[in-house]
Amino acid sequence: MIKRFSSAAKAAFAGTMLFFAITATAQETDKISEGAKIAASEMKTKLVLNDNQYTQVVDVNKAYLKKVKDCKASGDTAPAKAKKMQAINEERDAKFKSVLTETQYKKYASVRAENLKKLKETAGI
């Protein structure tokens, strides 16, 4: 009887842990999706995106945020992470270049450069 209870308790515990793992993964996916939509909405306003561009920008942002999350979670050294982040940013920019018009992309690049400048000033770099 005790053996049966132990097995049942173990199964219940494993099921509970699986539930929490699935819930946590779903919440992370929701956070990434929400972040991608927020960024795309801001871009839609600033760059005057059409509906098709908006949808594509959301997809690019989701992929970007997922890769950033994975990069941060990796056990790599800071220089290795920085190198990966540079590649991730270049990939995102290339995808945006294919989605946005030339004028929109120039404005995107300008805003991004300004934000990067402000970030460096704030960080004292």
Rank of each mutant, 00 (worst) to 15 (best):
Q86W: 00
K37Y: 09
K37P: 09
D59A: 15
K3D: 09
A94E: 09
F20I: 07
K44W: 08
T122K: 13
N115M: 14
E90I: 00
M1V: 08
M43N: 11
K3F: 07
C71A: 10
A73Q: 09
L47N: 04
T45D: 12
A36N: 11
L119V: 02
V48A: 10
A80G: 04
A12Y: 10
A11E: 10
S41N: 15
Q27D: 13
T25L: 14
T25G: 14
L65H: 05
T23S: 11
A26V: 12
K62S: 06
A63C: 02
N52R: 13
A80T: 11
T45G: 05
K66L: 07
E42M: 10
T101F: 06
A24T: 10
K72E: 05
N52K: 15
G124V: 04
M85A: 03
F20V: 07
G15K: 08
A12L: 15
K37I: 15
I2T: 06
A24M: 12
F20T: 04
F20Q: 01
A39D: 12
Y108P: 01
E90M: 06
K46A: 14
Q56I: 01
V111Y: 09
R4I: 09
K3Y: 06
Q104Y: 05
K66H: 00
I22T: 08
Y105P: 02
A40C: 07
